[in-house]
Amino acid sequence: MAKISLKNIVVGYRKKGIHKPFSVDINEGEVVVIAGRNGSGKSTLIKTLSGLLSPVSGEVLLNEQRLASMPISERATFLSLVQTSAHFWTGLSVQEVLELGAEVNEQKASLERIQQLASFFGIDHVLKSSLTEISDGERQKTMILRAILQNASTIILDEPTAFLDFPSKMKWWEFAKQLKEEGKTLIISSHDLSSLSSLSIIDHFWMVGESEITSHQGNLSLPELKGLLN
């Protein structure tokens, strides 16, 4: 299980930082929600947390170990990632993608578990279809499931509900609650403020503003959240 620490972190591209330095600790089993306006740097922060992007300054620590110096295969046991959208050009089927996810941490992908999760998320009918031929929502569910099957201690999700219909969104948040109970750490970037405010699973709420990132308690009401965004 991992404790994640951000030490004076500044994220950005080409050595240009977006915000003031930001420090925070996330304990195992906590849920962090990242919100902010379009273009505020949420995805940049997500990429930095997942090690895809180096911070302009500061460090990301996983159990006191620098993320940057951790072997890539070891990182995959701590962190799994779901992106907003990705352009895929692959011939792999949904089931093959899910199996790849499960194999990351050397587990034998149990077909029953895959079937069970796929049926919970309503994608069991597309298991044999190619990832490129299903709808955006089904693809997003596939990538969320793949991240869950990767069985990393922390799951980082960039707008996981962007393409989901209302019932699917509710199912996902319900599942997120279960993941938290299992001790998984979740870092989620989301615009779905009304769903978020009704959930009682959020521990930290990070607001990504124009020049700084601020951390708040998770149990904020919808008007309080909207107030922070404005």
Binding site: L52, I72, L79, F88, M143
Partner: peptide
């Protein structure tokens, strides 16, 4: 071939799934 499978999901997913 397994690495190629991972790679076909795009650089960022491949990386997050442990591929250098």
């Amino acid at each position: 071939t397994r690495k190629l499978d991972l790679f076909s999901l795009g650089n960022e997913y491949a990386y997050s799934m442990g591929l250098d």
